[in-house]
Design a binder for these strands. Sequence first.
RNA 1: GGGCAUGUGGCGCAAUUUGGAUAGCGUUCCUGGCUUCGGACCAGGCGGUUGCGGGUUCAAAUCCCGUCAUGCCCGCCA
Length: 633
Amino acid sequence: MNSPSLNAKKIFADMLCGAIAELYGDCGVDSDQVLASITVPKKEFGDLSSSVALRLARIAKKSPANVADDIIKAAKKGGSLITGLTSSAGYINASLDPCEYARTVIGSVSLAVEEYCSSGIGKGTKIIVEYPSLNPNKPYVVSHLRNALLGDSMSNILQACSYTVEREDYIDNLGLQMAETLWGWKNISSSPDKKFDQWLGEQYVLVNQRLEQGGEQMKGQIRSLLKTIEDTNTSDSRLLREIAQRCLEAQRETLFRYGIFHDVLVWESDIIRARLLEKAIELGMSKGIFEKPSQGKYAGCVVVKLDRITKFAKELEGSREDSKVMIRSNGAATYIAKDFAFHLWKFGLLGESFTYEQFMQQPNGKQLLTTAPQGKPMGFGNVKKVVNVIAEHQAYEQLIIKVLFNLLGRDDIAENLIHLSYGMVGLEGIKLSTRKGTWRGRERDYTADVLLDEARAKALEVTKSSKKLSDPGNAPAISEAIGLSAIRFEFLRVSPQKTIEFSWDKALTFEGSSGPYCLYSYARAMRILKKAGYKKAGLDDQAYLALTKGSDFELIKLIGSAQEHVEKAASQYSPNVIADYVSDLTALFSTFYESMPVIGSEAQPLRLALVDAYAITLRSMLGLLGIRTVDEM
RNA sequence: GGGCAUGUGGCGCAAUUUGGAUAGCGUUCCUGGCUUCGGACCAGGCGGUUGCGGGUUCAAAUCCCGUCAUGCCCGCCA
């Protein structure tokens, strides 16, 4: 979809460039800079504004105001869209022909419908988004939810930009946490009496409580379990995979309720089994970036020396060690080694490697696949770009992976490895720990399940007394959608790198800039269309003459910039750009709604088409946040 | 010791990447507005030395230097 706002800017930029070339020749201000100088100003200054004259003032040795006037005089008309240029305080302001621009915007929306907000910038590029990679031994709590929602929304946004997206979830089924979980399974006599992930998470807390009370014997048992689960042929490792499987299925129920889906699960144990790790170590040895010291501190280990890096020197300055261990002296791989192997695979440097089978059918109609020993190759991986949604406290580890690619001479890959880092979620003064069990609050558990239950319950209080529902029986389903919108919006409106002090009450706010307000706005728009018996049809040019230069045109301009916002959200890896846009859009619609009657007005055909364009745009932008609209509430 | 992130009206955020007009939005508080398409609403008002100090520039929340505060990280844990 071509962006109407970007097209308008380009026309304006071309006019400016022509004039600048004529007046100043090759003055060092190129067409990209001219385009970048154009913004949407406050409406009293016009529809578009360029600050390029301010920049040129020095070169031209004139005041910015004179430069602006000269450029306006020299500018040739570039079609009928831009009707006039004026200067003010050195800025060059352009006015758009409202009817023509409205025709472009409304025409584009009604032609493209659901595709209206999408962009082609990622066409032909495969990309992996990995999220949330929660260990399969606990329920989702609010802090994990941020990861899952960011990953889901980011995937939607990249898809809207025509990237081919693989949604991947890494299942960390080896390691200490899982060994502890297995110990609990074998030594604490209790059987699951609730949702399995919740129950397993509670067991895990019990194990940790016992560990704190000491018990060298217990610690020894866990250490030995840690070894046996790495060997895929032991009964313990098979038992643990079953436990993990059951936990995953329970966790999926939560994710599905939140509308979060994946394409493939990649198990840590399969990385070992498929010999990715071995291949990675061989590659590192043969390229000379790994070494195996026979003496000194790292005797018997495989390490990577960090003193040969050609990038990232600043970030690693002052690190306490100049080497990172890949393989321990006892032969066990470190987390970083496995992650490195995984990333070599992601970028296609280790070939196909995995086989897959179906894990389950998802409610969105798509299969969820999983790596598996007796499956078949499916062609995942081998992508150009990787986005890892991982908490900020793992930034150092993510940096090391980039460093390893740098050492391999593959800075191109390092640049395409994106760590979508996000800040931690605090909870009303409590630091959430799944180990200590602080997610089990006094009044409630701070799990994603409970949060959505409460959000739905709060929505239901309002919805059940609503007189607007065509069928009161729909209230529960509508309330679930409203509750979900509140939560998703609350998490996604903040830029990822900020920490969130999560408040149960604030997340369930339905007023102001919030998910439910967006849904409410959508329902109002749908009501107008329904009452008017709106049928989609092309508007004749006469209908556009009813346009004013008030909130109707402001709304059209904002709708016209949807793609630009989607592209910005994608290139900055910031779903909050979409949330901000949706806030502005809904607020502007309210202004329009209050000040410009639709039904019965002389402008009815135009305004109905505008309401329809608004509804389509809002629906697809909310869709990028994973928020689904309801027609009534 | 070093690195990363954050710091913007009482509270929660945007604008910082690419310097540009009076720093926007939500909320709280105050004042108005429902015989007219949905009040989960709208209009108006109060509220800011953009942590602090320098520098660059015609122009700094934005760039540079320094500094303070908060959080996280620098393991043969994951």
